[in-house]
């Protein structure tokens, strides 16, 4: 009996370590696999020209990723401009002003918003945001557009990132010690002054990290953006023009990538860019959070 228990313990320990090791080495394995797949394109073109060139013609073997990187950054920044103030304000309201009932009601609301799949956001974007941009906003600014544009992508992406950013902001605001708030209030500060001078300062690292991780999330989002952004290879500062972010490039072309030489390698390289950029942002900002939590 005793022997059996010990054997079970041993076997189980090995199994536990193995599963944890698999999961922890997953990013490394993914990076290596994607890198191995993109070696052919490194042989054909140098890294700076891959990233910096805007000549995209796979049939001639020319792969310049700059238009896609540019679109990705543009959509991400646009979505950040829409969502960041909204999240910050909502987080302040929910932690400082709101009644207990509203807070309890908001938890499932945020959960559901976070749980809705990106395709649903994409469909909502096609049904609501695209016509709104094309028929309402465009005439106001005097431009002609189908509505499938960087702007539409930015709006849909902003809505998608809200629950994600809001959750992290709420966490960092709730971590501010109550004593600090009470001290400010007892000195005669109004609630807003407490927020402005105490809470925002105290949770500044948390706010920065939430925004950073929100940006990373927006950068990698695929389907919702791809459905509304228009998918045309071009570089333009005009938000009413169509764009073509990196994730959309991968998702759109997997069907034909085996028929054109180096194309599959190029798409794997695109995935590698996403992995490296997003993993780096995540590691940096999460490190920031852990550091400040300790202090």
């Amino acid at each position: 009996m005793h022997f059996k228990r010990r054997i079970t313990d041993r076997v189980n320990n090995i199994w536990m370590v193995a599963t944890l090791a698999i999961v922890l080495f997953l990013p490394l394995i993914m990076g290596i696999a994607l890198y191995a797949k993109s070696i052919p394109i490194f042989d054909a073109q140098s890294l700076p020209s891959l990233l910096g060139s805007s000549n995209w013609s796979p049939n001639d073997g020319k792969f310049g990723f700059w238009p896609f990187i540019f679109s990705s950054i543009y959509v991400t920044v646009l979505s950040f401009i829409f969502s960041a103030p909204l999240c910050l304000f909502a987080a302040i309201y929910l932690t400082q002003f709101a009644t207990r009932r509203l807070v309890h009601f908001m938890h499932p609301v945020i959960d559901i918003l976070a749980g809705i799949p990106s395709v649903i956001y994409g469909m909502w974007g096609i049904l609501v945001i695209v016509p709104f941009v094309g028929d309402v906003l465009a005439p106001v600014f005097g431009v002609k557009t189908s509505g499938y544009s960087i702007l539409a992508g930015g709006i849909v992406l902003a809505v998608m990132c809200i629950p994600y950013m809001l959750n992290m902001l709420l966490e960092s605001f709730n971590a501010v010690p109550t004593g600090l708030k009470e001290a400010a209030l007892s000195l005669g500060a109004t609630r807003w002054e407490t927020v402005k001078h105490v809470i925002l300062r105290k949770s500044f690292p948390g706010i920065i990290s939430s925004f950073g991780l929100g940006l990373a999330k927006a950068f990698g989002e695929t389907l919702a953006v791809m459905m509304v952004v228009g998918n045309m290879v071009q570089i333009s500062g005009n938000p009413f023009k169509a764009g073509y972010p990196l994730p959309a490039l991968i998702a759109n072309n997997y069907g034909e990538m085996m028929s054109i030489p180096l194309y599959d390698s190029a798409l794997m390289f695109a995935a590698l860019i996403l992995l490296v950029v997003i993993l780096a942002i995540n590691l940096i900002f999460r490190y920031f959070i852990y550091k400040t939590q300790k202090a």
Binding site: P27, I250, I278, L279, L283
Partner: peptide, 15 residues
């Protein structure tokens, strides 16, 4: 693990 959570699903798809 938190960082792993942040990797977008398209990268998992490509992998």
């Amino acid at each position: 693990l938190d960082a792993l959570w942040g990797i977008p699903s398209i990268v998992y798809g490509a992998f």
